[in-house]
């Protein structure tokens, strides 16, 4: 049974809480088959946007839809969308298995799903423990298991890395990739970039409730460059500009250090050798996503709110 591909669409989405704008005129699309990271500093409006997608918060204006429908319009929402929100809890008297049993019934899912999702998420070893005794990492897994009960085509996770140990994060990364590879749609919010850098192919960046950037992770990095240090930096620049013309851009970083855009380390080293110019350093530079993110959100200029 192919239950299709579901696209998340956000159009002109705005939420004002008591005259404070949490989200303003947001537009983005999340396509199936990829893991999309929803990035932004704390308080940027990520959770509010996710809650609007899930029908928990009513938008002031605009639309947030999954497969063209608002969450509450989905015939069996939990069978289409699985979601884990940061603020969710468990009844402390319930065992992990009780909790899953309640929600399997609430969603109208087969009993066998409880064991399946427990195996899938590693909950089985602590299935019989009451939730009040579970560690943060175990609670994270149980939340994910709950979200997967309906074998959803869309997964929305709010800060999924919080409280997971490195092993758990690696496991989650692999899980999300396999999930997306089945043409399912994954949106994970995060303020920790390193987490997302390795798992997401696409990003949506917001800050102060507004869209900053959306696209492939690779596009966000910006242009690669090479840092070169040489006692004859001036001669090197002249050689490179003569040989490659307009393809090359050079920035001065110091008396004998330059940053060269538009050439590979190999090309620069070959030209230097051909003209007998000694190099004391030649390093490829790739801006980290962190730098790109800070640049995009303007928080590298000391105006972190």
């Amino acid at each position: 049974m192919n239950r299709g591909s579901w696209t998340i669409e956000v159009h002109g989405l705005t939420k004002v809480f008591d005259s404070v704008a949490a989200v303003t005129d947001l537009d983005f699309t999340v396509s199936p088959g990829t893991v999309t990271a929803f990035l932004g500093p704390n308080g940027a409006g990520k959770t509010t946007t996710m809650r609007m997608l899930l029908g928990l918060v009513t938008p002031t204006s605009g639309r947030a839809t999954i497969g063209g429908l608002r969450y509450a319009e989905l015939p069996r929402p939990a069978a289409t969308v699985g979601a884990v929100l940061d603020t969710s809890g468990f009844h402390p008297d319930h065992t992990a298995r009780d909790h899953l049993g309640v929600y399997a019934r609430l969603g109208g899912f087969a009993r066998s799903r409880v064991d399946e999702v427990m195996d899938l998420t590693g909950v089985t070893p602590f299935a019989g423990r009451t939730t009040r005794t579970l560690s943060t990492g175990m609670r994270r897994r149980l939340h994910l298991a709950t979200a997967l009960l309906g074998d959803p085509r869309v997964l929305l996770l709010d800060e999924p890395g919080n409280g997971l140990d490195p092993e758990g994060i690696a496991w989650l990364r692999g899980f999300l990739r396999r999930f997306a590879a089945e043409d399912r749609t994954v949106l994970i919010s995060s303020h920790v970039l390193s987490e997302v850098e390795q798992s997401a192919e696409r990003v949506v960046v917001i800050d102060r409730g507004r869209l900053i950037a959306a696209g492939a992770v690779a596009d966000l990095y910006g242009e690669a460059a090479v840092r070169v240090r040489s006692p004859q930096a001036g001669s090197l620049i002249a050689v490179l500009l003569t040989a490659h013309g307009g393809a090359v851009r050079v920035t001065d970083l110091g008396p004998d250090t330059v940053r060269v855009h538009g050439l590979t380390t190999a090309a620069i080293a070959a030209d230097a050798a051909a003209h007998g110019i000694p190099l004391h350093e030649i390093t490829p530079e790739r801006p980290t996503l962190e730098q790109a993110f800070l640049h995009l959100t303007g928080h590298d200029q000391g105006d972190v709110s």
Partner: peptide
């Protein structure tokens, strides 16, 4: 116990 969110997701009406 903050289970309302999960319940609302499974039974939105």
């Amino acid at each position: 116990h903050r289970t309302l969110t999960t319940t609302a997701l499974f039974a939105p009406r």
